[in-house]
Design a protein around this nucleic acid. Sequence first.
DNA 1: CCTATTATGTGCATAAATTCACAATAAGCT
DNA 2: AGCTTATTGTGAATTTATGCACATAATAGG
Lengths: 211, 211
Amino acid sequence: MAKSSKIPDPTIERLAQYSRPLEVLLKNGALLILSEKLAELCGVSPAQVRKDLAYFGEFGIRGVGYDIRALLQEIKHILATDREWTLCIVGMGNLGRALVENENFQRRGYNFVAVFDSDPKKIGKTLPCGLTIEPANKIRELIRKLGITIGVISTPPFEAQRVANLLIDSGIKAILNFAPTRIRTPDNCAVENVDFTVKLENLAYHLGKIS
Amino acid sequence: MAKSSKIPDPTIERLAQYSRPLEVLLKNGALLILSEKLAELCGVSPAQVRKDLAYFGEFGIRGVGYDIRALLQEIKHILATDREWTLCIVGMGNLGRALVENENFQRRGYNFVAVFDSDPKKIGKTLPCGLTIEPANKIRELIRKLGITIGVISTPPFEAQRVANLLIDSGIKAILNFAPTRIRTPDNCAVENVDFTVKLENLAYHLGKIS
DNA sequence: CCTATTATGTGCATAAATTCACAATAAGCT
DNA sequence: AGCTTATTGTGAATTTATGCACATAATAGG
Ligand SMILES: NC(=O)c1ccc[n+]([C@@H]2O[C@H](COP(=O)([O-])OP(=O)(O)OC[C@H]3O[C@@H](n4cnc5c(N)ncnc54)[C@H](O)[C@@H]3O)[C@@H](O)[C@H]2O)c1
Ligand SMILES: NC(=O)c1ccc[n+]([C@@H]2O[C@H](COP(=O)([O-])OP(=O)(O)OC[C@H]3O[C@@H](n4cnc5c(N)ncnc54)[C@H](O)[C@@H]3O)[C@@H](O)[C@H]2O)c1
């Protein structure tokens, strides 16, 4: 049963990772998987896999393993990815465009329904995906009209907090931020940051210890 | 002093994060910062900041704070970002192009010196940044010739492991992987994965608990 | 030169996350 | 049915990371 208050944060992150190979296996027609196998595919320990899943219920069959289809469904349900989400992107530069054209998001239920920019030269342009770039001053209106719940920020860092405030003001409850700066949000708005250079610096650190 | 074996992994990640606001402060002419202020800017506790830094030495002045310029230099030295790195990108789709055009990397000493693709229609094209897309079969040759140490993978997931093997074979010691799949590397090759959809699923989980 | 003030550096306590090890249980076999 | 085998689910032990609280050291002011 879901003792929902006490779930470790890393567990949530791993659940998403578990779903990747499960999807592939399911597509390939596999029916069953052992914690040991899934662990290996994800680079974690088998006990970790079992414990992560056990936080939410008993999804396996002792002595047998996990039914792949059922397990995937459970994980998707836990992560609330068994429904459709509507998102918008603010800042349609190189990264924003790469995001909106990537069909991985769509396939997982993350639907971009509006994209914004403040550059007059970009506003009004229609993208290959069919969306037209809207001016930043329509953010509030369109978020409400289209019922957008997740906002993606891919503006330069200096604009990120201003944009975040605008999104929060418009009722957004979750933000994915690609600008390499921390943005502040009230407690009722979740933020996840993606900063590639931090990852690179991690690599550099490890390389530096060798060479 | 560097008891280098016992540094927590999260500490390394945070060091990179500390450097962001420090760079901004330095540019703005600030000279001094307190652990409390830096902590606030990064969303961590002041004790955490001090402890993280203390793993590597005594960089502050008691009763006074940290000299911003010196601290930044120390952090860069620890992370080995006080030197230049040469990298290549394999897979010049939307994401690969966004990465190579982003001057943030260059500014931090991460220099893309070669980019590869397997699509004949893309090979030979010259990008705004001045690099020409090379065929995948020149990966080995160019990595050696240009002394490339870090490889970036932005191919579809199905190709990622194959590409990784090629990079490892060519002597690469660190890989930044954007394909949403785990890649296996020998112990002497570090990997960092960047998976946006995992972050989104994190957000969805938190949203799901509310609405 | 001494005292008050301030903010760092750090040993110790606490909390969080992972791993261990085994009891529980399902399925197959005889 | 009972016995064997396999793998899950989980409490307890261990490891890892964070936070606390104060000793330490530097500075400023009288
Ligand atoms: N491109 C990458 O590979 C990459 C990698 C890591 C981080 N990032 C970060 O992601 C962000 C975007 O990167 P990019 O390469 O697409 O940059 P970019 O300069 O190509 O695009 C930024 C876009 O944001 C728009 N913009 C600026 N202010 C705005 C505002 N207030 N409202 C709406 N739109 C606004 C600009 O007009 C521009 O189109 C940056 O913060 C960058 O540091 C990018
Ligand atoms: N675009 C995004 O916003 C985004 C977001 C998250 C993850 N990703 C992931 O990043 C990767 C790249 O995304 P994208 O949007 O640029 O995809 P894309 O399809 O636009 O580009 C992939 C490129 O890789 C090339 N390629 C394929 N096999 C290759 C090989 N063996 N050697 C060299 N090149 C090869 C293709 O020719 C193509 O140019 C994908 O795995 C994607 O899932 C992308």
